[in-house]
Design a protein around this nucleic acid. Structure first.
Length: 814
RNA sequence: GCGAGAGUGGCGGAACGGCAGACGCGCUGGAUUUAGGAUCCAGUAGGUAUUCCCUGUGGGGGUUCAAAUCCCCCCUCUCGCACCA
């Protein structure tokens, strides 16, 4: 079979037929989206899997009568293009556009059907204009703000990073150790949406449970109490957040994060001032890894100050300690060494009091050795002694609120989204800094703020944004007062670009607005979203957040961007490493397809295992798929001349083949929906094997009819070959994908006889071929007349009989 | 440490309370062939007294007539979070 010419023939036919175009039928609308790719060279097998899974689903849904939307685009801004540009001395834009061109032709060569008229490329001004517009809207609604704080800094990439881009204390891209650096940066107030992002997960029954769990943990909601501890001999007070108000009477010190601004406000006695300042400085020098690798080994420094526990007027020491996070809660904690392991370790190290207030279940608890962190009964807690922890949490919180000592509060682990980057290859932040007016947004009609040409700028990252070196770019006038002003020199995190692309797809060529509401309401939400699990806590949270925001400002009506999410498994190499360009183990798709043809590549990829499981890429599977295709072709070509239309069975042999056919139709459809393409293909193989085995005993026209149906159900997996073979039987049909998916006949899902297993005391002793409607008594009589059953029943008496219809008869003999 | 998931032939994997190993790769033997390749046929978990029987789904226990599948404990691996008070 000449794969090349079949590929070319059908690719061009599909193109002529506009198969990939949405017809506008809202009631049958089905929006399939694969996470768009970062164009870093040609596509590799990992990308291919993503696209193939989408394309199979597209073709299947099409055959099931859906009006399918299937767009494609490129997540084109970002670090790798710059790195490649620096390394190869090429421009980031041309490098990116070249890669897009190579990858696009691979997709087209594969015959993957996308509506290219909707293509988006995030690095083009017609797209990033609207990314900038979203930023302006966020600013307008108070959700974008600039703040100086200690941020994650990657010393190798020379840029700040969002919390989501720090993995185990290291940069997600280059794995360098991340340090804290004080910088004024743009943040997006995603924390305002924390509660809705959390609640919204409940409305996503078709998202994988693990992704939802990961998001819940990332958002990290906890309820507690905020209490003010007045500082002794001062008008200041220190606010703390606790989820354990029941331990309030056990507080023996307060610990403050070194980078917290609380410390700056305190009037630290001269005697201690130097030590505290030295400590703050040394903490900030540490990398995140150094700070977190010493879990258990806490250190800190006494400030010389005391605070007063408002519940019992106890005087407690105030410490600076870097086991406290500045960015969570208030930046200070009440420390209860008796009931918190971290506080315990700290108290032991610095000989601070350990004061138990919760009675452990184990009366002999040694508080000197360990903290008791479970709940229990309170003691040494004034009027609250004797209550259990749950009651005490409620009563103490109420008391604190009533006496105006503090309030109940909810804290989230998720942090505001730091979006400015000191890099060249991104969308410029559309803000202007005016000496007189301060921060002024660029007016909407001035968008896009164009990124300067890479030829005219030194884009090698040096710590400040490369855009600041371009005087043409940076110098501007204030939109408000007309005076001298400077543009913001930072670019946006690429995750902003990808947080809304599914919305642009509905109206990709709109130059008047971001997208039309009418189109969005007709085409949204995404019905099936396919992509890797690595985006669970990054992209998939931003994507949900921005969708909600755009809904809130009236741009569309959907609360959630995607109804169903499928995480396709990673493609690994033999050593078990994820296939990626940066690891150097990527197998490119282009040459592989040139050599083997698109369907063989596709079939091998699908047969490797279920789409949602990780899989090792190996070329060993090619041979089996190749043989299957050849056997399918051979049989189909041989019987084409005998085809007389659909034909029912007229003999026992034909009936058994017909039953297998109907079972296969049913299974294939179900497996596609479940992303278990390996078993779908296996069942078609079984059917073909059976036909080949029985074809001599069947009428030619019947065999032809079975093979005809087979060409239709194999088409989503092997579209070019499916079409070619289908056309031998239905030369007048324009495309198999314009025909309806075969309907299985439920009368023919099981055979005239079924094999029933006979078990005695749990072991299989016989197998009986019986009619499916046989009664329990009948089958029992037949079973006990079998020699191999008799052998065992004669040894005792049958005390129990269990008959599972069409499956098994289980006898207990004693 | 916390959270999620996984552990089945030589390999990818099926079965997800009811015949363990579907389908495919590989391997062994045979046919065809000058040979190689390709194709076709038979076999392919281990043991064994070979149409029988026994043992086998990371290890140990449990529930059940019946467990790879459900429950408990342990081991190993992968992923996510990682001092979140």
């Amino acid at each position: 079979m000449d794969f090349d010419s079949i590929d070319i023939k059908w690719n061009s036919r599909w193109n002529d037929l506009d198969l990939e175009k949405y017809q506008g039928n809202h009631n049958k609308k089905y929006y399939i989206l694969e996470m768009f790719a970062y164009p870093s060279g040609d596509l590799h097998m990992g990308h291919l899997r993503n696209y193939v899974l989408g394309d199979v689903f597209f073709r299947y849904k099409k055959m099931r009568g859906f009006d399918v939307i299937h767009p494609v685009g490129w997540d084109a801004f970002g670090l790798p293009a710059e790195e490649a540009a620096i390394k190869r001395d090429v421009a980031p834009d041309s490098w990116t556009m070249d890669n897009i061109s190579v990858s696009s032709s691979t997709l087209k060569r594969m015959g993957l059907l996308y509506d290219w008229e909707r293509e988006v490329i995030t690095c083009r001004p017609d797209y990033y204009k609207w990314t900038q517009w979203i930023f302006l809207k966020l600013y307008e609604h108070g959700l974008a703000y600039r703040k100086e704080s200690y941020v994650n800094w990657c010393p190798s990439c020379n840029t700040v990073l969002a919390n989501e881009q720090v993995e185990q204390g290291a940069c997600w891209r280059c794995k360098s150790k991340v340090v804290k650096k004080k910088k004024e940066q743009w943040f997006i107030k995603i924390t305002d949406y924390a509660e809705r992002l959390l609640k919204g997960l409940e409305q996503l029954p078709e998202w994988p449970e693990n992704v939802k769990t990961m998001q819940r943990n990332w958002i990290g909601r906890s309820e507690g109490l905020r209490v003010n501890f007045p500082v002794e001999d001062s008008s200041e007070s220190i606010g703390i957040f606790t989820t354990r108000p029941d331990t309030l009477f056990g507080v023996t010190f307060i610990a403050i994060a070194p980078e917290s601004d609380i410390l700056e406000k305190l009037d630290i006695p001269d005697k201690y001032r130097n030590d505290v300042e030295d400590y703050i400085e040394s903490s900030l020098m540490k990398t995140e890894i150094e700070r977190t690798s010493t879990i258990g080994e806490k250190d800190g420094v006494f400030t010389g100050l005391y605070a007063v526990n408002p519940l019992n007027d106890n005087k407690v020491q105030i410490w600076a300690a870097d086991y406290v996070l500045a960015s969570y809660g208030t930046g200070a904690v009440m420390s209860v060494p008796a009931h918190d392991t971290r506080d315990h370790a700290f108290a032991k190290k610095y000989s601070i009091d350990i004061k138990p207030v919760i009675k452990p279940q184990d009366e002999l608890w040694d508080f000197n050795k360990d903290a008791y962190t479970e709940e229990g009964i309170l003691f040494n807690s004034g009027e609250f002694s004797g209550l259990n922890s749950q009651e005490a949490i409620e009563k103490i919180s109420q008391f604190v609120e009533d006496s105006k000592l503090g309030i109940r509060d909810v804290n989230y682990r998720i942090r505001d989204w730091l979006v400015s980057r000191q890099r060249y290859w991104g969308a410029p932040i559309p803000m202007i800094h005016c000496e007189k007016c301060g921060i002024v947004p660029v007016s909407e009609d001035e968008l896009p703020v164009l990124l300067p040409d890479s030829q005219e700028i030194d884009f090698i990252p040096k710590g400040e944004s490369p855009l600041s070196t371009s005087s043409d770019f940076i110098n501007t006038v204030c939109p408000k007062c007309g005076g001298k002003a400077r543009r913001d020199a930072d670019t946006m995190d690429t995750f902003v670009d990808s947080s809304w692309y599914q919305l642009r797809y509905v109206d990709a060529n709109n130059s008047e607005s971001i997208f039309s509401k009418e189109k969005a309401d007709n085409e949204l939400p995404v019905d099936m979203y396919i992509g890797g699990i690595e985006h669970a806590n990054g992209h998939l949270i931003y994507f949900r957040f921005i969708t909600k925001f755009l809904k809130d400002i009236g741009m569309h009506s959907e609360e959630e961007p995607a109804l169903k999410l499928v995480n396709q498994g990673m493609i690994m190499d033999r050593e078990g490493n994820i296939m990626s360009k940066s690891k150097g183990n990527a197998v490119p798709v282009g040459p592989f397809v040139e050599k083997h043809g698109s369907d063989l590549a596709r079939g091998t990829m699908l047969f490797i295992g279920p789409g949602y499981k990780d899989a090792l890429w190996s070329e060993d599977g090619i041979k089996g798929m190749h043989r299957f295709i050849e056997r399918l072709e051979k049989a189909t070509v041989e019987y084409a001349p005998h085809f007389r239309g659909n034909c029912g069975p007229s003999s026992d042999t034909e009936k058994s083949v017909y039953v297998k056919l109907n079972q296969t139709i049913k299974q294939t459809g179900g497996d596609i929906e479940a992303f278990e393409h390996n078993t779908a293909i296996a069942s078609i193989m079984e059917l073909l094997n059976l036909v080949n085995q029985k074809k001599e005993q069947m009428r030619q026209e019947f065999t032809a009819s079975v093979l005809f149906t087979m060409t239709r159900i194999v088409s989503p997996f092997l579209p070019h070959i499916g079409e070619e073979l289908h056309s031998l039987y239905a030369p007048d049909t324009e495309s198999v994908f314009l025909t309806e998916w075969p309907v299985y006949d439920s009368k023919y899902l099981s055979e005239d006889t079924v094999t029933v297993v006979v078990q005695i005391n749990g072991k299989v002793r016989a197998k009986l071929d019986v009619p499916p409607d046989i009664t329990e008594n009948e089958i029992y009589d037949r079973a006990i007349s079998e020699d191999n059953v008799k052998k065992y029943t004669d040894k005792g008496t049958v005390v129990k009989k269990i008959y599972v219809k069409k499956k098994l008869l289980s006898l207990v003999v004693k």
